[in-house]
Nucleic acid binder design. Sequence first.
DNA 1: CCAGCCGCTGAGAGCGGGCTCAGAGGTTGC
DNA 2: GCAACCTCTGAGCCCGCTCTCAGCGGCTGG
Lengths: 263, 263
Amino acid sequence: MLPRRRPDRILVTEMNTPRPRGPGRPALTRTDGTPLRVLVVDDDPDLAEVLSGALRYEGWEVRTAGDGASAVTEARELLPDAVVLDVMLPDTDGFAVLRSLHSVRPDVCVLFLTARDGVEDRIAGITAGGDDYVTKPFSLEEVVARLRGLLRRAGMARQSEDGPRLTVGDLVMDEEAREVLRGGELVELSPTEFELLRFLMRNPRRVLSKAQILDRVWSYDFGGQAHVVELYISYLRRKVDAGRPPMIHTVRGAGYVLKPVAR
Amino acid sequence: MLPRRRPDRILVTEMNTPRPRGPGRPALTRTDGTPLRVLVVDDDPDLAEVLSGALRYEGWEVRTAGDGASAVTEARELLPDAVVLDVMLPDTDGFAVLRSLHSVRPDVCVLFLTARDGVEDRIAGITAGGDDYVTKPFSLEEVVARLRGLLRRAGMARQSEDGPRLTVGDLVMDEEAREVLRGGELVELSPTEFELLRFLMRNPRRVLSKAQILDRVWSYDFGGQAHVVELYISYLRRKVDAGRPPMIHTVRGAGYVLKPVAR
DNA sequence: CCAGCCGCTGAGAGCGGGCTCAGAGGTTGC
DNA sequence: GCAACCTCTGAGCCCGCTCTCAGCGGCTGG
């Protein structure tokens, strides 16, 4: 339903009242406590919409732009901490935009969006500066995680908790090292399993529907059925719960929950 | 499409007599104390009517629209906190409306209504921003609950009491975790049992007729008889009251009440 | 005190949600 | 270019959930 391109439209959202959204978990904020400011630049308005929705949900202040020119305009106003930037834009290419952005704010973090077959090698040079990129199609969890990583490393965000570690009961995930421990024991996960578990761990004690999981963990152009979620939950259980008291629970007719054992 | 009316079902509109606000419980309000504003968009006027009745019963300010264009117009006037939005509209698609709504008010919460039968059992990216959706046919309790959840999570509503937890006596329900405790002991419920109990707990000390229960807890296309209510009450009693002093009481000829013990 | 009704509960059928296995296709790394 | 791995599809099975039916008991009005 999403990936329907409408390149003729250029969308610029209006002023965005900074309001706390998102789940109960503490948001990553700027060092002065105000919400992080992010500019999303993509010429596909649907994609930009979904992205900004996801970022707003993180409690961040978001604006969008549909081309390079308006990106620079918006940036001058917003002075964003980070920019999510499509490399392929209708008017200019991402790198030109990047130069302009750096002239606006030299320390801005940039997360590039690029097509797989595209210009990965050129990106590699850029990201040496500490910026990062994801290839389309991506999952929202991945974009959000990368962005959080960028901001944290750049020292632009206040450490909300204990840095890049997620903990639920005796389950610990080090996002940067991509390592998961259950009761001190290493659990090896495939990329998708890892991302699914990360999503669960970022929403502990909360029932998540298969649709929600699909929307966040799988890439936006995935056309498949909710059945895969069941499948990957079963994989996760084998690895994470194996033998131990279960942390992943099925709520029939509703979804899945991750919670610490006992209580 | 809408509920063919049967004598044993009354619709919320009738239940929604002059009383400014529904039940005895405190209403969820905006942070400034004024009523929450909701826009209902559905091309079926009957359905829109039933929905807005139920939401008005919650003490919210409601307007309705029948298509995308008038939805945007209404939204500009009302500046709603939340929108209940049918995905299938006569003029435009849901994403276009969503974008327009977000340009009116970037932090608006959206609850999508979607047909279950269709090919589109997945709505890519819709739940991404923290928005949510329910599939038709739905129960009114579910719509209201989802909407409350959205608004609460978005920080748009004043926390009435202890957040996402409902408490009656020693009975506690965590709506997000879908967990119910009676006297600290976990009570496992099926989806329907859960929803029925939620309805009872949101209207404690208040006699609810079987017709009222049917209207709120069962989906609007349910063809069955009021007899199921008795059945599910009996299931609930087994699980919730089991052994303990009863909280669920029958009022012969009138309906059922949930009240704390003692007193 | 009896008849009739209302409500309660047991039994069971049908269905659909959820889990698992097997395998195909694709991708990665050696 | 091969092997290992990862991801996803399809099929089959099981079981929990929902609802119908039917019988019974207790309340209530005559």
